[in-house]
Each structure stands twice: as C-alpha cells, then as structure tokens.
C-alpha cells in the first residue's frame, strides 16, 4: 500500500471511529447505569437517522440543525425504557436482552412500514464538498460528523466527571444500593442517564445518516458494534469508548482498503465473539 493511501485510510479510520464511538455511547451508558443490555440500540439509532432524514427531506434545513429535533423525538423511549427496566427482576442482563430483542424486531417492523422502499441518505450538498491537504483528501461531511461526535463525547465526559448529577450517575452505576444509602436519588440518576442515552442515540443516528445509508435492519450491525466497543472499553468508561471506537474505525478502514468491503460484517461478528470469550461484560 502506498504511503498516501495509508495516510488517507488512517484519516478515514479516525473519522469513522469517532462516529462509531458516538453510536456506542447510548448503549454503554444504559449498560453502565442499569446493568441491562439494550439489543434494540442499533434500531433506536437507525430510527433517529430516519427521523433526521424525514425532517431534512421535509424542511431542507441543514442536517446539523435537525440533530436536537431528532434527539428530542426519541425522548419518549427513555421513559418507556425506564418503566420497563424497573419491572425486570435482578439480575437484569438476560431478561433485558430478551426484552430488547423483541423491541429490536418491533422497531424494525415499524420502520419497514413507515419508510418502505429504497435506503435513505441525508445527502446535503453542504456536506458533500471536500478539501485536499497534501496527500489526504478531507470530506467535509465526514469531518463535521467526526467533530460533532468528539464534541458530544467531550461534553458528556465533562458533565459526568465534573457535575454533581454526573457523580450521582457514576455512583449509581457502580453500586446502586450503596448510592441509595448515601442519599443519592438513584431513580432520578437512572432517568437522566436514559434521557441522555436516548437523545445521544438519536443525534448519532442523524450524523450516521449523513454518511451511511439507513435501512430498517441497519441497526443490527450498529448494536454489535456498540457491544464490541463497550467490551473493549470496559463497562462504565466513557472516554475509553472513544479510544475503542478509533481502534475499530482504523481497523475497519484498513481491512476494507486491503480486502474490500465484503467481509466487514462477519469480521464484526467475529470480533464480538472473540471479545465476549476473552472478556464477558456481564455474567
């Protein structure tokens, strides 16, 4: 591989990795706070992408302006999830997995009905241009997506580590009972986390839809990605999710550059299997 191709591949990988990390955030947050696994995570992100697409196609506004709207549109899911998770007996990992498997299927059916026909892409002209820096061509859309993802991860990290409710969230995730005994309102901490997780998933969906086609079953792979990144990062670690995302993004770009895109999906499934065997995130 010539050096220029390698540089280009690495840059694409880094930008892809930022997006992956952003996509994985919601999954990692829900696992961290409630020890439940959200198998419908990818479908929720995809739903955010479809909503973003619908708004963009309907209004013609700049996609970045639509992110808050798509994020807000998914908030009802946060309350629904909170209600459902409260009903599950502990340990929640297995029942939550089955429950959200059902939701994944339900959301897929819903999206198939609402958006039939071809795959959708937010192909805003404002994001289509690219600039050349020496060996490397930078696509504006992808760069904006990567920056937005970085910004969101950074803001979330600051919020969780520097604010009072952020500490409440971390304490609740570490040990729910101990946090409750220490006077932390674990119910509110869970609700805030779910609200943030769903909003971030919706936002990630819009960003995703500007660079990747969305289709009803697009979420399957996103969920697998999110689980892989969460295992690599370790449960409850937000900033390491970014590192894991970068690693995966670069690995994927290199794989695709060397062997073509065909083996992407089985490679992700293989990574998930290997990660689970090496380091199961739950018992």
């Amino acid at each position: 591989m010539p050096l220029s191709t390698l540089m280009q591949t690495l840059v694409s990988g880094v930008m892809l990795g930022c997006l992956y990390a952003f996509v994985a955030l919601g999954f990692a947050m829900i696992l961290g706070i409630s020890h439940s696994l959200n198998l419908a995570h990818g479908e929720i992100v995809t739903l955010g992408g479809y909503i973003g697409y619908g708004l963009w196609a309907g209004s013609g506004l700049h996609p970045l302006l639509l992110i808050p709207v798509a994020a807000a549109a998914l908030l009802p899911l946060a309350f629904l999830w909170h209600w459902m998770l409260d009903r599950l007996p502990a340990p929640r990992a297995l029942p939550s997995l089955a429950l959200t498997f059902g939701w994944a299927l339900l959301l897929q059916a819903l999206m198939r009905v609402l958006w039939p026909g071809p795959h959708r892409l937010i192909s805003s002209p404002s994001l289509g241009a690219s600039t050349r820096f020496g060996w490397v061509t930078l696509n504006h859309g992808r760069a904006v997506v990567a920056l937005a993802a970085l910004g969101a991860i950074g803001a979330l990290w600051l919020a969780v580590t520097r604010t009072r409710w952020g500490r409440a969230i971390r304490a609740t995730g570490l040990d729910r009972d101990a946090a409750a005994l220490a006077g932390i309102n674990v119910y509110a901490a869970t609700r805030i986390t779910l609200v943030l997780a769903m909003a971030l998933s919706g936002a990630a969906g819009v960003l995703l839809a500007t660079t990747h086609y969305v289709y009803p079953t697009a979420g399957v792979e996103l969920t697998l990605l999110a689980i892989v990144l969460t295992i690599w990062a370790g449960v409850g670690r937000l900033l390491t999710v970014l590192l894991a995302g970068l690693l995966l993004g670069i690995a994927e770009s290199l794989t695709v550059a060397i062997s073509g895109p065909a083996w992407r999906e089985p490679v992700i499934a293989c990574l998930l299997l290997a990660s689970l065997l090496a380091r199961p995130p739950v018992d």
């Binding site: 696994l37 297995l94 939550s96 689980i227 998930l272 689970l276 739950v282 018992d283």
Partner: peptide, 9 residues
Amino acid sequence: LGGAALALA
C-alpha cells in the same frame, strides 16, 4: 460463559 454473555455469543 453463562446467561447473557452466552446469549450474546
């Protein structure tokens, strides 16, 4: 593996 980890695997 058991439980949820096996299910995911």
